[in-house]
Design a protein around this nucleic acid. Sequence first.
DNA 1: AACGGTAACAACCGCAAGTAT
DNA 2: AATACTTGCGGTTGTTACCGT
Length: 266
Amino acid sequence: MGRQPCCEKIGLKRGPWTIEEDHKLMSFIINNGIHCWRMIPKHAGLLRCGKSCRLRWINYLRPDLKRGTLSEFEENQIIQLHARLGNRWSKIAAHFPGRTDNEIKNHWNTRIKKRLKLLGLDPLTHMPLQQSVQDATESEQTSHSNEDKEPQIKPLSNPALESYAVGEKMQEKFEVGSDDTINLFNSYEMLWDSFNLESAVQSSETTTSNSSSTSTSLSITDSFNPSMGESSSLQEDSHCIPSVDSLLSWDGFNPFDDFFPLQNYL
DNA sequence: AACGGTAACAACCGCAAGTAT
DNA sequence: AATACTTGCGGTTGTTACCGT
């Protein structure tokens, strides 16, 4: 039998969203909240599938989104979290209120990966590249067990201890040219020394479990629709509401101009 | 000015997990 | 317990802007 597709694809629009579509989606969600993504396009008068609407809301329209490039500090945090969590972008994003998993994933793939490679680090394992290759070769040669043959994909079990004793060596070895890269390297090294990742992740996991993208969205929309009473209130998640600056910093288009009486919420 | 290459970002797709019946 | 359905996630692709030649 198989599963029903999430939506009837025939006649649906794809590709970049127009401003009108954004307005329709915003307006609908603000007035009605989010109950069922599948129904939203139909009721909002959009020729999109629910999935597409959800993505657009989460990655672009959500009022609590923090726009702009990630700071150096955020970048370093991402690196640390990636060393521990691997490609679990949503888990990583949960540590950055206002950032989306898509955004962090894109940032990782387009920038951080390259910088790590420049530093001679394998973005996958966070180990020095040559060492990774060497380890792989050695394990192939010795071939002790099947476990030894596993590719070096697992995140480090204790990255703070393992990786950054090589810091000095790496710096000598790769003669990294740009100041940026050197800065990244230094802070990377420093952070491992000083940052108690374990406790940070744990505390963050407990505190952010309620502020994932979805619950955040809901709590915010709830705040516009007190009658919904579906979940937590704005008070609880108020830290997710962005500053005026971040709301107003959208280039060209601020979808909230038409819908949000901002002064009531900020 | 035209072209090609690249970076950055947005959006789509397929699958898995979670939930309701 | 089984099935149907929805939602969320991660990988991938598409699009656009920018830059160097």
